[in-house]
Simulated scan of single mutants.
Amino acid sequence: METQPNNPLHGVKLATILEELTDKYSWEELANQININCFKSNPSIKSSLKFLRRTPWAREKVEKLYLHSIKK
């Protein structure tokens, strides 16, 4: 098994990322920072996870926001 010592996202589940972001920001703030409908229209962790798992560009934006938020 390959280890990824320089990858801060290694071992962090997408669900955990979303939970931490929604604890820090409201859904409305998330929608303002990342313009995707799963944060705007009837948002939930479950629906957002489904969308982000199928949409690599959106997942990348969420991961970047998460990395930015944990650096502070």
Rank of each mutant, 00 (worst) to 15 (best):
E63C: 03
S47Y: 02
P56K: 12
N42L: 15
S26H: 06
E2W: 08
S26V: 11
D23I: 12
E28V: 14
K40L: 14
T22I: 07
S69D: 06
N32K: 15
I45Y: 01
R59K: 10
T55E: 08
S44K: 09
C38K: 09
L67F: 12
L9Q: 10
A58Y: 09
A58K: 09
L9C: 04
L30K: 12
R53K: 13
E19M: 05
S47G: 10
N7H: 09
L49D: 00
N35L: 12
K50E: 00
S48D: 04
V12D: 02
N6I: 11
N32R: 13
E20C: 08
F39E: 00
F51V: 05
A58F: 07
R54L: 01
T55M: 06
I45D: 00
L49G: 01
K24Q: 15
L49N: 00
L14E: 05
P8Y: 05
P5S: 12
K64R: 14
I70D: 00
P56M: 13
G11S: 08
S47T: 13
C38T: 09
W27N: 13
W27F: 08
E19F: 04
P56A: 09
Y66P: 01
Y66H: 08
W27C: 15
N42I: 13
E20M: 08
G11K: 05
I17W: 05
K61T: 12
K24M: 13
I36M: 03
S41W: 08
I36N: 02
N37L: 15
E60V: 03
N7D: 04
T55L: 06
Y66K: 03
V12M: 05
K40R: 15
M1G: 13
L18W: 01
L49V: 04
N42E: 11
N7L: 05
I45C: 02
E2I: 14
L52V: 07
K61A: 10
Q4S: 15
S47H: 09
T3H: 14
Y25C: 13
S47I: 13
K61M: 14
W57Q: 15
T55F: 01
S26W: 02
Y25W: 12
S69M: 05
Q33D: 11
K72P: 03
D23M: 12
K13I: 09
K72L: 03
C38I: 05
Y66N: 04
D23C: 08
K40W: 04
K61R: 14
E29A: 10
L18I: 02
V12T: 09
K64Q: 04
V12N: 03
I17A: 02
W57K: 15
L52Y: 02
